Amino acid sequence: MQVVPRQGGGAVAGLGAAERVTEAWLANRRLSEHTRAAYRRDVAGWLAWCGAQEKDPLRASFLDVNAYARGLEARKLAATTVARKLSGLSSWYDFLVKIRAVEANPVGGADRPYVSRDHSATVGLTPGEVDALLVAAARAGERSRAVITVLADLGLRVGELVGLDLSDVGWERGHRTVRFVGKGGRPRRRVLTADAAEALDRYLAVRTSGDGRTSGDGRTSGDGPLFVTSSGGRLDRHAVFRLVRRLASEAGIPAADRLSPHSLRHAFATAARSEGVPLEDVQDAMGHADPRTTRRYDRDRHNLDRDPAYMIAAARARRAGP
């Protein structure tokens, strides 16, 4: 990375060089486009701060990173947001260490905000609210119904949903399935529930390709995005975000203006655990590498009705007999 002098005696990495290094770093990672875009913004924010402070990012210390983090907190950003930005920046510096552009990662010694694994800022939904959202989606049209049903029944990330292609839907060993690339670039597959499969088939029967043609028979062969706009382009995450909030408002769900597609993912995990699905099965379904992440999604995990003490006492009573 080329370092060029700045007026006033400071030095910063050349913008073009920094961008090239960032792209090389991202190319070296298996990431979704959404994550790549977020990482680009995180690095760009740091470089802009370094430029304003006349700091050379190649010579930054943990003290500089601390000052940057405190500045983010002063902007009233959530601790989770600050922690995520620093995590992306740390990964960027790890790459710089590997290519010997810097000797050490300055983020490693920085004071990162504490983020509890039991905390999630996502607003959740009760099973009844999910049902009401599905009813509103069915009234809104076949695409809306299919989008919300797949999110609710499978707990997919919104990026996984909008990234689906026609060819990703099929049959495997008697199961209707959907294949997709999950977080970290891992190929995954999930079964479609009867409701999700029916919703998809009804949508495919009226799905337009942008030139007025429809799939007609619900088949999913061929290329192209599964969920499309009226002009035939791929439906994006922002459209799904707006759809969830609009339908939630129509369904009379409280806090509709604070919901997101991720709210349905949280609801999926909570409902699965409440129905007795083992934690490891929910973890696998959601594509979590760490079971502690899955537990954070389970909003009902602190329900006293689920205290294992009741199960142990009941088993003891059965052994004792009448």
Rank of each mutant, 00 (worst) to 15 (best):
G232R: 03
P254V: 05
R219T: 12
T229V: 11
G232T: 02
A255V: 02
G232S: 02
V228I: 11
G216Y: 02
E275M: 09
A272H: 05
T229I: 03
P225K: 08
I253H: 06
D236S: 08
S215P: 00
A239T: 01
G233D: 14
L259N: 09
T294Y: 11
A289R: 13
A271V: 11
R219F: 12
A251W: 09
S263N: 13
H238I: 01
A255M: 01
L264D: 07
S221D: 14
E275C: 05
L247D: 07
T270W: 04
S249E: 13
D257K: 14
A269K: 04
R245F: 10
L259K: 06
H238S: 04
G287H: 14
A269P: 08
G276D: 02
E250K: 15
A239I: 06
V244I: 15
A255K: 06
S249L: 03
R295V: 15
T270N: 04
D223T: 08
A251C: 14
M286S: 12
Q283S: 14
R242E: 00
R242A: 08
T214F: 09
R258G: 09
D236L: 03
R258W: 04
R273S: 06
V282M: 09
A256V: 01
A248W: 13
A285M: 15
A271Q: 07
D284H: 12
V282H: 05
